[in-house]
Design a protein around this nucleic acid. Structure first.
Lengths: 151, 151
DNA sequence: CACGCTGATGTTATATTATAACATTAAGCG
DNA sequence: CGCTTAATGTTATAATATAACATCAGCGTG
C-alpha cells in the first residue's frame, strides 16, 4: 500500500492545509495535536485512497518508532469524531476529508479496483423517506464501482 | 444474541416464505439448497435484527453439529450474491431481505441500540450526482440512529 | 451401476481488523 | 512544584474473515 499511484488524477488532499486546519481546530477547542494524531492525519491526507488502520500503522513512525494498533486507532477515532476523516465501511478503511460539511450525510464513490474514494454531495437521502418514528443521526452512502481510470 | 425481542414491533421475516422463495429460486437456477444454506437463511429470516457471522454460527446446527466459520461465510456469500440477504457494513452484520428489488441501490435504517434494521426505498442517490466517469455498480445507504422503540 | 466431473462442504490454520486493561508519561494550572 | 487530567505506551486478546486443501454428494454418461 501507499505506493505512488496516479489514479483519479492523482487526487489527494494537501497535508499542509489539512494539518493547518487541524492545528487551528485543536487550539480553538482545547485539543492537543499530538505526534500520533498528526502523523495519522498526514498519512491519510497524503493518500488519495482509503487506507486500512494497519496500512497507516505500517506507514507512520512516531518519534522514529513503529506504533502499535491502539495508538493508531485512538488517533483515527479522534479525527473521525471531529470530522477530519471518514470511515469507508465497505472497505474497513479511512480517508481524510477536506470538505466543510455537517457530517450528518455523506456520499462516497468507492473504486473497487484501486480503492480511491471521491466524496460527493447531494441532498440528504432521508428527505424522501417515511421514517415512521426512526430518529436518524448519521447517513452515509457508499457507491462501489470503477473510477474513471480503472474502467 | 437471538434472544426474544419485541423491538420494532417484533418485525421479522417469515422463514417459511423466504425459504419457499429460496427453494423456488434454487430449482429455477440450478442451485442447491443445502443444509448450511437453509439454516443460515432461516436464522436470518427469523431475526428481526442484524446478526453477525458468529451470531449465526452460534445459532445454527448443521446435522446436529456446530458449524465452522467457513461454512457460515460461504452460505452468507451465496445469499448475498443472490439478493436474499444484505450486509450492513456499519455493523459487520447481515439481515434477510424479502423485498423484490434490483440490488443496485438500497437504504437501511439501522438502530444503534437494538441493531434492528428497516429497509427503505427511495430514488437512487446517484440521480443527482455528477459521476464524472465513475461507473457505479452498487449503492448502499446506511442511516444510523434510534428506532421508534429505542428513543 | 460404476465412473468421473463438478460444485459444495469439512477441516485446519491463519490473516485482518479492532479493543480491553492497565502502566506510564506529558501538559496545563493553581 | 505538585496535582489533576488527558493522552500515549504496552501487553494481550477479541471479533471478523479467508486461504488452502481434503472429502463428499449429486448428477450425467457410458
Amino acid at each position: 500500500m501507499l505506493e505512488k499511484n496516479t489514479c483519479c488524477g492523482g487526487h489527494s488532499h494537501t497535508p499542509k492545509n489539512l494539518i493547518a486546519k487541524a492545528e487551528e481546530f485543536c487550539s480553538a477547542n482545547g485539543q492537543r495535536l499530538t505526534a500520533p494524531r498528526a502523523e495519522v492525519l498526514k498519512t491519510l491526507a497524503r493518500s488519495h485512497k482509503a487506507l486500512g488502520a494497519y496500512d497507516i500503522l505500517e506507514a507512520v513512525l512516531i518519534d522514529g518508532k513503529k506504533a502499535k494498533p491502539p495508538t493508531i486507532y485512538r488517533a483515527i477515532e479522534f479525527w473521525l469524531e471531529h470530522g477530519f476523516i471518514h470511515r469507508i465501511e465497505s472497505l474497513n478503511a479511512y480517508v481524510s476529508c477536506d470538505h466543510d460539511h455537517d457530517t450528518a450525510g455523506v456520499h462516497f464513490l468507492v473504486c473497487e479496483n484501486c480503492k480511491c474514494v471521491r466524496e460527493a454531495h447531494t441532498a440528504s437521502p432521508l428527505k424522501a423517506l417515511d421514517l415512521d418514528g426512526f430518529e436518524p443521526k448519521h447517513s452515509q452512502t457508499e457507491t462501489v464501482g470503477l473510477c474513471k481510470d480503472c474502467h
